[in-house]
């Protein structure tokens, strides 16, 4: 009986979280087109529904009914599984994100699908696996553009994952746990009654490094080397069409939402309200607000910065970002040591 309720609550939470994520992906594409349009003095999608609000649904349907093409000479098996390998890690990470305060449902704990004690590392493990989808997709397409895009992506993801990992170690030192639930709980409350106890105030450098690395990890402008359209057509998914293309697309946007959620949880207090008198607003609304603010930032820098060159990207990752995060780690470790004694 116990197990039955456990399965039911888990399935319910998974359904709600997945639908939210997929809807966010859909409306993230809409928001991106709209915000970019406003930045460029255009209107953006206006035709489908009022203010073009139904555009993402029309786009989704279009992708669904498009012809599925497998190029000649492609490795059929790997060509088919690559988008799936890419998509699963992007969605599976949401299992450990605490989306609201703990509650009980049918006698089971809610608020997060799975409170793993290594939740943070779990997300990182699967983020690394997502790179396989990109490389294999590029390789299996039997196209030079796709192969180059895939290889670039592999190099980029490996380089920036390191910086991303180092930037969060400071947060781990402060909260003393790898569980995202504990990290969020450690950030409730305020200092002096008006500064929220968020890690971003203790780890501003790490937050900056994390955001830069996150943009590079998700292959977004100005770091979108793997799909640089002016040199590689579309990078690793040049040869993809229809549903398989949609999978890559979903994975990219899912990853963006995941890294934004993670940044909110690690640095911006997750579902905690910034000040006590604001806590009448439910936790998931705060998490959504913080995540959307970061997603807006993603669009904003896309509309602002030109693409960097590949050697600049690598130099920046290895010679600037990693040393900065290492020094930050050293300072944080010293600080925590002195504070604890």
């Amino acid at each position: 009986m116990e197990i039955g309720w456990m399965v039911i609550t888990a399935l319910l939470q998974i359904t709600v979280v997945l639908i939210t994520v997929l809807l966010t992906v859909a409306y993230m594409t809409y928001a991106e087109r709209k915000v970019l349009s406003f930045m460029q003095d255009r209107l953006g999608p206006m035709e489908v529904g009022p203010y073009g609000l139904l555009q993402p649904i029309a786009d989704g349907l279009k992708l669904f009914f498009k012809e599925d093409i497998i190029p000649a000479g492609a490795n059929k098996i790997i060509f088919s599984i690559a988008p799936i390998i890419c998509l699963i890690p992007a969605l599976i990470g949401f299992a450990v994100i605490p989306y609201t305060e703990g509650f009980t449902l049918f006698g089971m704990q809610g608020g997060v699908i799975a409170d793993l004690n290594v939740g943070l590392l779990y997300i990182f493990a699967f983020a690394g696996v997502g790179a396989y989808g990109v490389i294999l997709g590029g390789w299996a397409s039997n196209s030079k553009y796709a192969l180059l895009g895939g290889l670039r992506s592999a190099a980029q993801i490996i380089s920036y994952e390191l910086a991303m990992g180092f930037s969060i170690v400071g947060v781990l030192l402060l909260s003393g746990s790898l569980s995202l639930v504990s990290i969020t709980q450690a950030q409730s409350g305020t200092w002096f009654g008006f500064i929220p106890q968020w890690n971003v105030f203790l780890q501003p450098v790490a937050f900056g490094a994390y955001v830069i690395a996150a943009v590079a990890e998700t292959n977004r402008l100005p770091f979108d080397m793997p799909e640089a359209e002016s040199e590689l057509v579309a990078g690793f998914f040049t040869e993809y069409s229809g549903m398989r293309f949609a999978f890559f697309f979903l994975a990219e946007y899912g990853n963006m939402i995941l890294v934004s959620c993670l940044a909110s949880v690690l640095f911006l207090g997750g579902y905690n309200a910034p000040l006590p008198f604001l806590s009448f607003i439910p936790g998931f609304a705060w998490l959504a607000l913080k995540t959307w603010a970061l997603l807006f930032f993603f669009i904003w820098i896309r509309g602002t910065f030109p693409r960097v060159r590949f050697d600049q990207l690598m130099k920046f990752g290895w010679k600037v970002l990693i040393p900065v995060t290492l020094v930050n780690l050293l300072v944080t470790a010293l600080g925590v040591y002195i504070y604890n004694n």
Binding site: Y122, F124, A125, G128, V129, A131, I135, L136, A154, I158
Partner: peptide
């Protein structure tokens, strides 16, 4: 041993094997 499990994936699957694949394709 969840920690070991996750580190196994991060180190071997996420880093070393990607490099193997990288070299294979290059």
């Amino acid at each position: 041993a969840e920690f070991l499990a996750v580190v196994q994936i991060i180190v071997y699957a996420g880093a070393i094997l990607v490099l193997y694949l990288f070299v294979l394709m290059l």
